[in-house]
Every structure is written in C-alpha cells, then in structure tokens.
Nucleic acid binder design. Structure first.
Length: 418
RNA sequence: CGGAGAGUAGUAUAGUGGUAGUAUACAUGCUUUGGGAGCAUGAAGCCCGAGUUCGAUUCUCGGCUCUCCGACCA
C-alpha cells in the first residue's frame, strides 16, 4: 500500500475527548473512528488488524472442531421470552417495534438463537457433540461505554457454542477451549491469566475469564505468579501478599482486561427452548451446553493498551496492519529519480514476495514526519531508503521495539526476505 | 442511573455582551528534506432551541452530545 494513497491520515493531536491509550492512539493513527459513544468504525488500517485477529481466532477454533456460521443480529421477542431474557436483559438489549408492530431486539448474545436452530438438527446422541461459532456484531445498551474499544455498545464477538450429551463430555471440550484460547492470546501477543469468576446465573461452578494484566483494566484480579492460578476479585478467596490456595506461592493483585470468557451453561437454554436428544437408552434428554466468547475488537484495544510507547503503537507481527513500513527519504540535490526508482523496486520486490508493506512514497513530507508517522502506526519493521543508504548500496532496517538500526546491503537484503 | 467536567475551523486551543485570534492540517507558489521544515497568499469556525437585551458565541433556562469517577457489566 502506498501511503500517498491511504484513505486515512495521521492526526497530529490526540482527540481531546479520549483518555485511554487505545482510543487516543488508534484514532490518531487512523485505525478507528468514533461515531458515537461506545461505537467505532474500523478504517482500513484498523480493519486489517481486526481481520488478522479474527483469522487467528478462526484457525484455532477450527482446530478444535468449531464450525463457523453467522447468525442474524435481529432477534424475535417470542424466542427470548422462552428463556425469560426478553425481560431480564431489557435494560441492555435494544428492543423496539418494526413498522408492522412486531417486537424485535438486537442480539446481546446468541444462546437463544443458536439453541433454537440446533433443535432442528440435533435429534440423537449420535449428533453430539457439535460446536458452532461465529464472529458477529453484538449490541448492548451499556449504561456507560468507556475506554475506546474496551467497552462499547456495538462490538464484535467471537461466540462459540457447544452441545453435549453429558457433563463429562462438556468438561472435556471446556478444557480444550481453554487451551485453544491460550494459543490464540499467545499469538496475539497477550499474556493471560485464566481467572476463576462467578458462574453467574448459569452455573454454580465458576466460569473462567481470560484476563490481560494492565493498569487500565476495569477488572481486578488476584493471581499467583508461581502456578498462574487466578481469581476475579468478585469471588476471590485470595489476598494480595497472601498465599496461593493451590501452591502457596505469593499472591499479587492487578487491574486487568477481560478479553475472553467461557461458561458451562448446563441445560439452562436447552430446557427452556426444548432442545432434546434421544440418548442411548432411548430417553429424551436436554442437551448440555457451553458458551465461549472472545471480543476481537476488545483484544485489539488491549494489545494497544499493553504495547505502546510515547511515540505510538507497537504491534506484534501477527496482527500488524503491515509487517514492513518502507520509508523513502529524498533530497533534491541528489539524483532523486534514481533513488525513487530504487525505492519503487524494493517496494515491488517485497510485494512480489507477498510481504505486506506500507510504502511511504510521499514526496511532500519531511523525514521527521515520516518517522513519527511510522512510529505511531507501529509496524514491526521499518526500512529506510535514502540518498545516504543508496550511497552504500544499502537499506536501513529498524525494529519498532528496538533502537538499533541495521545497515544491510541491498544484495543481501534481497536474499533475507523470502 | 448518581456525581464531576467539557462542547469555538478537519484537529488542538485562546477570547469577547458589539459576529472571533493562534497553532496545525488543507489549497497555490517558491525554497526545503535523517526525527513532526521556511516564507508568502488563500479557503475554513462559536452544538441546538428559547429567554433577557438595541444587540447573545459570551448571561439565564431547556435540550443534545462527549469524557471522567461511581453504580452496572450475560
């Protein structure tokens, strides 16, 4: 991508009405645009990042047998009345009448919808277990949206639902999901504590939250560094400075962002909606269910919260909008055309190798501004082509997260990048 | 939903009971180019409504919007 053609431009100032690092940096760098409180558009740079996050999630969920589908955001009142949630979630669910007077809601989550569909296809224990998921927009009328992408009213959620014939099978899958989630977050560059939390209205058993430690988090957790056991403050039996109940290591306290959570639902939804299957012994039984969420947009915000410096964002390679930011610096006094040709060639060569590169080909920007933009956008690798480097038949390579500048001969550079 | 703060140009801000200034971004020209370049010229703005007033961007009331703290957070 040529930066001269990029839809968005860098803002020199942070938006005045944002405090959180993720909102400030992402808006300033042109990744996202706020349309209302708690509602953000993803612009080309941001969409690239989000798509990569989604792809990583897909790969890992597919690997444990998830089948992707896509459910509607519109929900009928009738279905939600079967579980009682048309009333219990009325505060946060957008509910309205359409022109013909039908009551309609926007999904806050999809247990009702997916269970209703499953009724059609699950008849026998032979149909179980089965796992379906989607990456889809959710709407919640949050009383207070905040912190940029961390808590919004319209947001993306990867929601996975599992259907089983017994608790044992659910437990098995639940553990698989924990592992898959840890892989996902590792690939996203997030270090996570799997944190015990309240099972809520679904279960007496604890649910599990995937918490990324950061000062700007809205949750507080207690955790043991030795064995990684962690509890949400809501249900905590641990205390800061105390002993870990599992391994008697030292307990720490931290703010954290919940980027994922998983619940054992039991038969709460299958019973209410009538999702039964015929078991081996010929009896009709309600399916046992689990639900598992990750917020890809929130994950994107969290990555920025935990990985930035005073100059801007530092993306991990796995989700960076572009792996390489190629910068062309020119000087009128030297043969500009020759230099431009060289930069163009490097750009073309990288593209031929399927390397995603943002090429700063702008001729009306100073070197300082180009460097500042590159630091803000946060691609992991910066390559500079200038008269200085051309004189040495070289390019300069610098990692975003390091101060070291490496001068590499062009001949060698061509070999390195496969 | 309680509390606090804030709405002036694309962005960030100053200021005033007599219709607004700066920076930056933008346009044009010239000079520039290794950490947010310079000069010149130009285009661009007081959230909405009502009230007070000869006159309101400014004061009063109402509304809308945004942010922060708290409550809430299947």
């Amino acid at each position: 991508m040529r930066q001269s053609q990029l839809f968005t431009k860098i803002l020199k100032e942070s938006p005045k009405d944002e405090i959180s690092a993720n909102a400030k940096l992402l808006e300033r760098a042109g990744f996202i645009f706020k349309t209302m409180s708690g509602v953000y558009d993803y612009l080309p740079l941001g969409w690239r990042v989000l798509s990569k996050i989604n792809q990583i999630i897909r790969e890992e969920i597919n690997a444990i047998g998830g089948q992707e589908l896509h459910l509607s955001a519109f929900q009928s009142k009738d279905l939600w009345e079967k579980t009682g949630r048309w009333q219990t979630l009325a505060d946060i669910m957008y509910q309205f009448k359409d022109q013909s007077g039908h009551d309609v809601g926007l999904a806050t989550t999809h247990e009702e919808a997916v269970t209703d569909i499953a009724k059609r296809f699950i008849r026998s224990y032979k149909d179980l277990p089965v796992f379906v998921y989607q990456i889809q927009t959710k709407f919640r009328d949050e009383p207070r949206a905040r912190s940029g992408l961390i808590r919004g009213k319209e947001f993306l959620m990867k929601d996975l639902y599992s259907f089983h014939q017994d608790e044992k099978d659910l437990d098995l899958f639940y553990k698989k999901v924990v592992k898959a989630y840890l892989k996902i977050f590792k690939r996203l560059g997030l270090s996570i504590f799997v944190t015990e939390a309240s099972g809520g209205i679904f279960s007496k058993e604890p649910s599990h939250e995937f918490q990324a430690l950061t000062l700007s988090g809205e949750d507080t957790i207690f955790y043991c560094q030795k064995c990684q056991y962690a509890q949400n403050r809501e249900i905590a039996t641990m205390k800061e400075g105390g002993q870990c109940p599992k391994c008697s290591g030292k307990v720490f306290q931290s703010r954290a962002i919940e980027v994922g959570n998983i619940f054992k639902l039991g038969t709460r939804f299958s019973e209410a909606i009538g999702l039964n299957f015929i078991s081996k012994d010929g009896q009709a039984r309600p399916a046992i269910m689990g639900s598992y969420g990750i917020g890809p947009g929130r994950a994107m915000g969290t990555i920025v919260e935990v990985s930035s410096d005073e100059r801007g964002i530092i993306w991990p390679e796995s989700v960076a909008p572009y792996g390489i930011h190629l910068i062309f610096l020119f000087r009128e006094s030297v043969k500009k055309t020759r230099l431009k040709k060289l930069a163009e060639k490097i750009y073309q060569d990288l593209q031929k190798k399927n390397i995603e590169v943002l090429y700063d080909d702008r001729e009306d920007k100073s070197a300082g501004e180009k460097f500042a933009d590159a630091d803000l956008i946060g691609a992991p690798l910066r390559i500079v082509v200038s008269d200085k480097t051309m004189a040495k038949d070289s390019v300069e390579i610098k990692k975003r997260n390091s101060k070291k500048i490496e001068v590499v001969k062009i001949s060698r550079f061509n070999q390195i990048k496969k």
